[in-house]
Structure formats: structure tokens, C-alpha cells
Design a protein around this nucleic acid. Sequence first.
DNA 1: AACCCTAGCGCAACCGGTTGCAATGAAATA
DNA 2: TATTTCATTGCAACCGGTTGCGCTAGGGTT
Lengths: 318, 318
Amino acid sequence: MTIRDVARASGVHVSTVSRTFSAPHLVNAETRARVLAVAEELGYRPNRAARALTTGRTHNIGLIVADIANPFFPPLIKAAQSSARERDYHLFVADTDEDPAVEEELVLAFSKQVDGVILCSPRLSNKALDKLAERVPFVLVNRRLRGVATVLMDVAQGARSAVEHLAALGHRRVALVSGPAGSWTSGEIKQAAAEVPGVELVVIGPNAPTEQAGIRAAAAVAEAGVTGVLAYNDLVAIGLIEGLAERGVSVPEDVSVVGIDDIVPGRLNRPKLTTVAMPTADAGRLAVELLIQSVTASTTLETKLVVRESTAPPKGLT
Amino acid sequence: MTIRDVARASGVHVSTVSRTFSAPHLVNAETRARVLAVAEELGYRPNRAARALTTGRTHNIGLIVADIANPFFPPLIKAAQSSARERDYHLFVADTDEDPAVEEELVLAFSKQVDGVILCSPRLSNKALDKLAERVPFVLVNRRLRGVATVLMDVAQGARSAVEHLAALGHRRVALVSGPAGSWTSGEIKQAAAEVPGVELVVIGPNAPTEQAGIRAAAAVAEAGVTGVLAYNDLVAIGLIEGLAERGVSVPEDVSVVGIDDIVPGRLNRPKLTTVAMPTADAGRLAVELLIQSVTASTTLETKLVVRESTAPPKGLT
DNA sequence: AACCCTAGCGCAACCGGTTGCAATGAAATA
DNA sequence: TATTTCATTGCAACCGGTTGCGCTAGGGTT
């Protein structure tokens, strides 16, 4: 079913059919109705790839994340997909397996096929990103880069309010179970957490951003003489809680634990995790929005502390 | 950067450049090397959309799931993406929000832009699916349909071994917290669970496939006089465990609980959930494979019981 | 009555590739 | 030496749309 079939069947030129779909006001109402009827009848749909060839707009967006199966990303992907679809865009999704080389390759591979790419927490160097920015518009999520549209989530503020929450409960010595060595996010967290007055911060790490790492970190936490912990993310926090339980220290009775991200497993965990909720869905929506409108803006989304069951006043104060 | 730029810069005709990329054996090694060098230099990459126009192969695949954020799907999406990429395919991902109309619209919207569509647990009627099958090749996951490639996961067998596991532990009266009313899967589970000799099955439901539904079902389970439970899925199982805890009945001491799916939150839950692992990653990989090879086959993947901490012998037998 | 506008539509070139066919020339065969 | 064969490359049509331009005819102006 091509545009020519429809043209033939409705007795008009292909250009008229084309305009019926892409510039309806340029064609007589009567003709338009007839063409639409015939198109419907034949089950015709414009071929978007062909259209892209002349218009230069594919109506596709590429979304690149480190790991689709990491519970942090699906809400972002879902939101991005949904707002893309609302505006008649389709979404390519790809997974880099945490490999910067794959990341670069993906952007390049997508470049001709999309109107823009959303890169989440890219591992690429600034220079590499600048290079890529010449080839395809993109927006960065969780990474700041001069001259490129960015959507940030304010982890720093989140980390600060997490530690403040612990301080308010009466904790005076708090551990930070930090993230991977090179991580920008981990740096932000550390800096913000250290700023909170009235609490002494013990940094434990670096650690991999996994449950296993959390379990392993439990030993160090138990020996650090702290009553509260801020973990790099929820996965680590959950692992930590498990590791602590194995050593007979219970949360939140003996130690309070705060995570970051607010992923689903944390909400289902027992005790339910107190955590810093990241507005991932908003970030996904916004990234799509920025891309489609092609505005180069740097946005920071607020994070929010969600107090659940893994934090309580320290023992002495109960 | 188009093929003509490369042709000009390397002093050959566009067709030679084209062949350099899509049929290298047809061009002299020396010429090929020169063209490749120039292409590299210019950063040229063939435009896949343009290529698709003549070849009819887009090298794109559409993946449609009910809910991207449902922990069941991400591993499938990830695996599909990864095997697609291995074969130089790109993956569109879309979310139907559980709406059959959206599902149909998506397939249609994708049809011209992909070589095939993977439909996971479609809600569409057989007739509607048959209709769609005329327009675009697809493979169904978790749904059987004559004449269409399908990838099934053997829930029936899984449910059976779950109940057998409970029976082997000594449970004689087991509740099935069933799924939504119309669900094919729920029917399969019920039938298979009922077949296991030596255990009396109490069906509780229908229920929504959510944690909340599990919490609500706890009352009925507590009153059913059972020592073991098979839940429609892990989410329900987790909710159930929480609901039971609220009533003072603990898992697995008082009641054993088995879930289905093996999603991440279940693995992190405490107690760690005994569950029927669905080979979602395999399903994703296989679906891509079938699509690319365009083989119309019906495959059934085995499920596997994973015994963790939420099951134990009933109280009297300990 | 001569003239201008405009709505509606057709014409044809073009987007960036692919591919069947023909032309070329060198190597191989008779 | 004449004739094939084959590897290599160019030519041009084509994939399915879009769009600037030009033509036509009906309506409005003066």
C-alpha cells in the first residue's frame, strides 16, 4: 500500500494524497474526504521512513541507558515512551551494559534514524560528548555539560535532606556508603552530605552500586560506630540492611538506613526503605519534551525525601 | 554526509560506495580501502532509513509490552535489545498501558518501520491478531495463536512443581491466590495446581496482579485454614506476606508462600521468595531470533522452581 | 470588459540509498 | 591471434514520500 495506490484509486495525483496527510488545509474538503476514505479502505498509512527522507524529521527518539533491567530506569523509560507517543514519536531503547564504547556506537548508529537522543547517566568523557553533539541533538540526563540540554535530579539536595533527617532524629555520627570511584553522582552526594552541620560523616567506600556491595559494606558499617547510614542507592541500602541483619544488628532499631532512588524493591522491602525519591518519570518526560522542542536548557528537578520504616531515633534517645 | 559526498571525495560513483558497504566482495580491495578511508574521514554512515526504502528491510524491531515499569518485563526487554543489537537491529519499545486499542494502534504505527513486532502477553482478540499478522510479521510471547510464531513460558509446569514442592514439604491444604478474571495465565495455573495429587486446593480470587491485592487477600488466606499458598505472581506474594505479617502470621513459620515470575523485588524481599522463575530473558532473546530468522514456530520454555526462604514444612511437622 | 487573486491541483525534482544491466578492459582459453 | 570469461565500475531507474513551482478556473475589483 503506497501513496501511489491511493492516488490511483481516488483519481488524484500523489501530491494531493501526500498533502491530504501532511498539509490537509491545502486540499479541498471534498477531495480530502474522498482520499481519506480510499486510504482507510485500503489500509494505507504513510511510510514514516520515506517521509523522513525528504523532511529530515524521523519522528523517532533514541533513549540510551546503562542497564534496562536496573530498577532505576524502567520508570524513566516508561514515562519517556509515553510522552513520546503522545506527540506521535516512537522510541528506540538501548542498553549500553555500562560500556562507554557501546554508548558512543549507539549514538552514532541512531544518529541518522532519530531526531535526537536521550543519554542517561553517560559514562563518556565531555570531549566525546561534545563530538557527538555535532552529529545529533541530544539531551543528557544526570549529567551536566555546557551547551547541551540537560535534565538533572538534585541528588545533592536529596542527600542533604537525608542527612538532615537523620540529624533531626538525633543521629550524630553517620556513615556514607559511597558509590563507584569515578561517579559524578557519588561525588555530589559526598559533598552535600558532608555539609550538614551537627553530624560527623564517615565515608565507607568506594563500592559497586549493587546489593552485594551493600552486604559486604555491612561489616565496615557495623564497626564504624555510627547510628545512621546514607547509602549510595537503594540497592546498596537493601543489601546493607540484609548484611546488618546477618550480624544481628537490626534496622531501624540499632541503625537507621536511608537509600537514594526510590526504586520499587525498596518500597516492598521490609522494613520499607526511607529514601530520597528521584523524579525519574519526570526526567523522562522532560527529556523528551526538551528534545522535541529542541530547547537547549539545563533543568534541575527536585528530589524528595520519603520517610518510611528504615529510620528511627538512635537507641539511646528512644 | 551522504553517499554522494563520499563518492565525490573518493572519485568513484555512488554505486561503488554503496557496494563498499553492502556488498564488499563486489568491489576491488584497493578501491574499497580508499572508499572506507574517505568514509571514515568524513564520518559517513549509511542512512538506514534510506536503505530500507529500497531493500524493504529496516533492521528495526518493535517490542510491545503491557507495562515497561512492571518488574516482569525489563529483563525481557534487556535481553531482546541485546540480541537485537548483536545482529545489528534496533529496537523500538512501547508500552500499551494495558489497553488493547493502544496495542493495535502501536502495531499499525510500527508496521512500516520495522521488520517485525514482538507482542508480549497481548490483550487483543485472536481475530484482531490474525488481522494484524497480515500487515506485519510478529511473534507472540505468552500467547498461543495458530499460524503465528509464539514463545511460551510453561507456567502450568511451574505451578505444578510449586504445588508439588509444597506437598513434598508436607502441606496438605494449599491456597491459590489467583489472578485477574480473564487471564489465560491464571487459568493455566489454576488447572495445573489442581492436578497435583495429595493436596487440597482452595482458590481465592480473582485478584488484581498487584501487591495491594496480595495484602487484601491475606485475610482470606488466614481464614482458609491452609498451611501453604501459591500466589498468581511475585507481587501478589510479596503483598500477601506483608498482609499476613500484619495479622501476626509469619512466613514461612506459620504459612509457606510461593510466588511466580522471579522478579527482582522478590529476590531482595525478606524472607527471600520461593518462586517459579520465568525465563523472561530467554523469551526475549528467542523472540528476536524467531523474528529475524522469520521462522513460524511455537516454542515452550521451561520454568524452574527456585526454592528460597518463604517455604518450609508446616508447623506440625517441624 | 479587462485584470488580479486565490484555491486547488498536477508536475517533476529530490531525499539517500540499492541494484539490474551494460560497458570496459585484462586475463584466460581455444 | 581470435574469442571467452570475469572482475570491476558506471549508469539510471527505483523505493515512498514531499514540496516548490506553475497552470487553470472561478470570483471579485474597478
